[in-house]
């Protein structure tokens, strides 16, 4: 389904975006809808779990068995304010196609950027039993050192010398020096805006490139660091890398 949106030529979007300046409105009449879609890739090509062997920047090869991460505190910004999704917690899980998109009502307006947090904000890490995307049943909650695993990447690599050549990154830690929580603001490309209209659904497609986990700003070879399953310095370094994996792929206005 998302491919249908991807095929819309970019110039059409530009036309929409030039349809006139609209002053920011804070009052809501009929809300519109905003759909957010995540497309997980490796270097721009859709991620294929299990079967495909990828090569990282250090010529190490790996396959991916599990890839999931929390997106929270989603908002879109207009000229003089932001519109926030209510109760905004989403577990993006590559193995569950339905989890790759979510939709919420938003105030009609013209927006210029997309904001979110990678991970679950610190408050929800200390607020007891949660449900829905934050249910511990999702296997993203540490029971011996309370807190959410913000992002999880598991697979195999011949360069990993741990048992079964496993690669296992469970990245978490919500406070202190090695807090891995990341707030991102992604501006829409020049000349492009997101227009939410009454009763219509617009969409933002975000690409996440798994290849970014290995490099920039931190060179992290699988042979050196095949496993990271506790909060700390390594987790922070990995999070510093993966915070660069997101980009706006497309904005679709209806």
């Amino acid at each position: 389904m998302k491919n249908r949106f991807l095929s819309i030529p970019l110039f059409l979007l530009t036309v929409f975006s030039l349809s006139g300046f609209q002053k920011a409105r804070t009052s809501i009449g009929q809300p519109g809808l905003l759909k957010i879609t995540f497309v997980n890739t490796v270097k721009g090509k859709p991620l294929q779990m299990d079967s495909t062997v990828y090569t990282n920047p250090f010529s190490e090869t790996y396959s991916v068995r599990k890839f999931k991460y929390y997106i929270s505190n989603v908002a879109v910004a207009f000229s003089d304010g932001i519109y926030k999704e209510i109760d905004s917690y989403h577990l993006i899980d590559e193995s569950k196609p339905a989890s790759l998109s979510f939709i919420f009502s938003a105030a009609p307006n013209r927006y210029h950027s997309f904001m979110f947090m990678i991970g679950v904000d610190s408050l929800k890490n200390v607020s007891g039993a949660q449900t829905g995307p934050l249910d511990p049943l999702n296997d993203m909650f540490w029971t011996w050192n309370s807190g959410y695993v913000m992002a999880k990447l598991e697979g195999n690599s011949p360069q990993s010398k741990v048992v079964n050549n496993k690669v296992e990154f469970h990245i978490g830690g919500f406070s202190g020096e090695y807090n891995v929580l990341k707030k991102l603001l992604l501006n829409f490309p020049a000349g492009i805006s997101l227009d939410i209209r009454e009763g219509k659904t617009s969409e933002i497609i975000i690409e996440s490139d798994l290849d970014k986990w290995w490099q920039h700003p931190n060179d992290l070879k699988i042979s050196d660091h095949p496993v990271c399953t506790t909060p700390g310095e390594l987790a922070k370094k990995i999070a510093d890398n993966y915070s660069n994996m997101f980009s706006i792929k497309q904005v679709i206005n209806n």
Binding site: N125, V126, S127, G128, A129, P136, F141, T143, W144, N145, S146, G147
Partner: peptide, 8 residues
């Protein structure tokens, strides 16, 4: 002190 809330 690893568990930060009675519910979990």
């Amino acid at each position: 002190g690893g568990v930060n809330h009675i519910e979990v």
